[in-house]
Write a protein that binds this DNA or RNA. Structure first.
Lengths: 212, 212
DNA sequence: CAATGTGAAACGCTTCACAGCG
DNA sequence: CGCTGTGAAGCGTTTCACATTG
């Protein structure tokens, strides 16, 4: 059933991974894949793969598996990845620089089209063909370029304020790299990537498993 | 009960956030915090906070709340964050550079003590006081410096191979930034941060909410 | 016959609601 | 009286198992 009504959160993440794997298989010239193979590639069970895909429709052939090309072509529009997304990046620091030039973003259809920083000393600098713009021009730029997503790569103290400004400018999704919780109004999506928390979790897991 | 037996995965992530919030409150001179306040700070319910903390022990005072300083001092060793962790970073590229100089790592007790890259042209370069070392010296360096964690910041094609080498060198936890699934033997912890997947999920969420 | 699609069972996490206690 | 600590209920996700079908 392809109601698309309530897709469980974890399913969305895996769907993206299935799509990516299909694209890899296509490049390798493989044209059929089983749920078991797809599962192994992304670290999930075959039952999981079949359940996940069934949220969006019926893509497989019983006895055979999933036709890679068909699946890829079906998934791309369902996941809204059949088009380009324009992204505003706020924070011309350490992390911001890496994201500016991160090739996988562009390969996957995400184009960083504007770079902002509140530090006037950075204003005018150019990174990866992007001029650093002042925060005062955020609103206008988002509207003019039709930017829909924003990335926060500023220090903790500024993160919530930047989130508010992005939302006020009309951005509909925010990816936060500052190690703090940010709130946005309903109707706007947020995700946080907290690099230190990732390492901290690893540290815990490591000591747990080595001390039975 | 402080059995520490089976801590649910999501609890671990939030525990780290509680600790961080305690440290912020301590710096602000606040000495008591309620489960409601802690929850708001990290985006969880008060019941969640109380349940989570109860996995590790009883830290609160009924009618009052949690003494910030006590909680902080109790949590730090429980989460294995009362010591320094040495980290090896593999991949002197785009992402690698940002991680080398990422201050929050050091502030939270994670010290990147060695940097590796398989490209001989990068060998000998110095980033943030770290010389780029060849992969052939990984094993020796991990042993000599007592490195326990590894970060993978290499292209997709090399990721699994680097993971294998890190594990062979004796690393017990791996943080993977390559947009692919990596497998490690049991007894080693892995976490993956997939930047493109984060944006792709946002894209899906944005189109879902704007098309009812 | 092999592999999908899917109800039903199992599991794990979150929320509820209230007893317990400073 | 206020807020913690916690069994029990509720909910969402994963796994199971098998009927279904090219």
């Amino acid at each position: 059933m392809s109601t698309l009504h309530a897709i469980p959160r974890p399913v969305i993440e895996r769907m993206v991974l299935y799509l990516r794997q299909c694209q890899r298989l296509e490049r390798e010239g493989i044209d059929t894949v089983s749920s078991t193979e797809l599962g192994e590639a992304i670290g999930a069970s075959s039952a999981q793969v079949r359940k996940d895909l069934s949220f969006f429709g019926q893509f497989g052939q019983r006895g055979l598996g999933y036709p890679v090309q068909n699946l890829e072509r079906a998934l791309r529009p369902l996941l809204a990845l059949d088009r380009e997304w324009k992204v505003a990046l706020v924070g011309a620091g350490n992390i911001g620089r890496a994201l500016c030039t991160y090739r996988t973003f562009r390969e996957r259809g995400f184009q960083i089209v504007a770079l902002f920083d509140s530090d006037p000393r950075k204003e005018g600098c150019t990174w990866a063909r992007l001029k650093v713009l002042p925060m005062s021009s955020l609103r206008r730029t988002v509207a003019e370029l039709g930017i829909e997503l924003g990335i926060i790569a500023v220090p903790v103290e500024a993160a919530q304020n930047v989130a508010d400004q992005l939302v006020a400018a009309g951005v509909k999704g925010v990816l936060n790299f500052a190690p703090t919780h940010v709130t946005v109004p309903s109707g706007v999506a947020v995700r946080s990537v907290d690099l230190a928390v990732e390492l901290e979790q690893l540290a815990f897991l490591v000591t747990r498993s080595s001390a039975p």
